[in-house]
C-alpha cells in the first residue's frame, strides 16, 4: 500500500471578493484604454495621408508611381471615357484597333512614348478587359477592368466616382485600372480578380468616397 506524504492535509481555497476582483478589472481596463489611446495617438495622422490610409495592400495612389506610369494612367482614363462613349452609342465595346484608328491614346501609336504596347479587348459576359502588354516584354502591363451591371440588377451605388462610371443609357459601370510590374508574366486572357494575380490597383485620389450617398442623390 502506498503511504500519503506528510504534507497531505486540508487546503484552504479563498476566492477573491467581488469588490477586489472588480477593482483589479477596472485597473486592467484603464491600462487597456490608456494603451489604445497611446497607440492611436501615435499612429493616426502620422505619415500616411487620409487617402493612403484607406488603401488595401494591393492598391496604390498614382501620384506615388513613376512619371511614365502616371502619363499612361492619365491616357487610359481618357481612352476609357472615349470607349464608354462608343459603348453608349454603338451598343458594343470598341475594339482596340478601332480606338487606335480614332487616334485615341494610349491605344493609338505614339512615337513619343518610351514603350510600345499590344492592346487587346477581352470580353466575357458583363466583364470587359482592356489589356496592354509591353511589346518588348520589358516593363509593366496595364489593365482596365469594366464590369457592366447584370440586367435587372440595381447599381450598388447611385453616384459616379472614379470607380463608377455611368453610360448614356443610365447603366452604372464598375471600372478599375490596374498595373502589373512584370509585363512578361501576364497572359493574354480575361482577368476577373486581378489582385490575386499580382496586379496593383491604381487610384487617382484614394478609394474613400468623398460624398455621402444621401448628399449625392440627384
Amino acid at each position: 500500500m502506498s503511504v500519503y506524504p506528510a504534507a497531505t492535509g486540508p487546503v484552504l481555497v479563498q476566492p477573491l471578493s467581488a469588490q477586489a476582483e472588480l477593482l483589479i478589472l477596472v485597473r486592467a481596463a484603464m491600462a487597456i484604454v490608456a494603451g489604445v489611446f497611446i497607440y492611436v495617438a501615435t499612429t493616426v495622422g502620422g505619415g500616411a495621408s487620409p487617402s493612403e490610409r484607406n488603401l488595401m495592400p494591393f492598391q496604390k495612389l498614382i501620384a506615388d508611381r513613376p512619371s511614365d506610369e502616371q502619363r499612361l494612367f492619365r491616357e487610359l482614363q481618357e481612352g476609357l471615357l472615349e470607349a464608354e462613349g462608343m459603348r453608349s452609342t454603338e451598343n458594343a465595346w470598341p475594339t482596340t484597333s478601332a480606338l487606335a484608328d480614332a487616334g485615341i491614346p494610349p491605344f493609338a501609336t505614339d512615337p513619343t512614348r518610351r514603350r510600345a504596347y499590344d492592346w487587346r479587348l477581352n470580353q466575357n459576359g458583363t466583364l470587359v478587359n482592356y489589356l496592354g502588354i509591353p511589346k518588348d516584354g520589358d516593363g509593366p502591363a496595364w489593365l482596365i477592368v469594366v464590369l457592366e451591371p447584370e440586367p435587372g440588377v440595381p447599381p450598388d451605388q447611385p453616384f459616379e466616382d472614379q470607380e463608377h462610371h455611368r453610360l448614356l443609357n443610365g447603366a452604372m459601370l464598375h471600372v478599375a485600372t490596374w498595373v502589373h510590374p512584370t509585363g512578361r508574366a501576364v497572359a493574354d486572357r480575361i482577368v476577373r480578380m486581378p489582385q490575386t494575380e499580382g496586379w496593383i490597383q491604381l487610384y487617382a485620389v484614394g478609394p474613400a468616397s468623398p460624398r455621402s450617398p444621401s448628399a449625392a442623390q440627384p
Binding site: 487597456i32 484604454v33 494603451g35 489604445v36 497607440y39 492611436v40 499612429t43 493616426v44 495622422g45 500616411a48 490610409r53 484607406n54 488603401l55 488595401m56 495592400p57
Partner: peptide
C-alpha cells in the same frame, strides 16, 4: 478613431 483601414489594431485589441 481614424486608424488605417487595413490595420485598425488599436480598436480591435482594445
Amino acid at each position: 478613431l481614424g486608424e488605417p483601414l487595413n490595420s485598425p489594431y488599436g480598436g480591435m485589441f482594445g
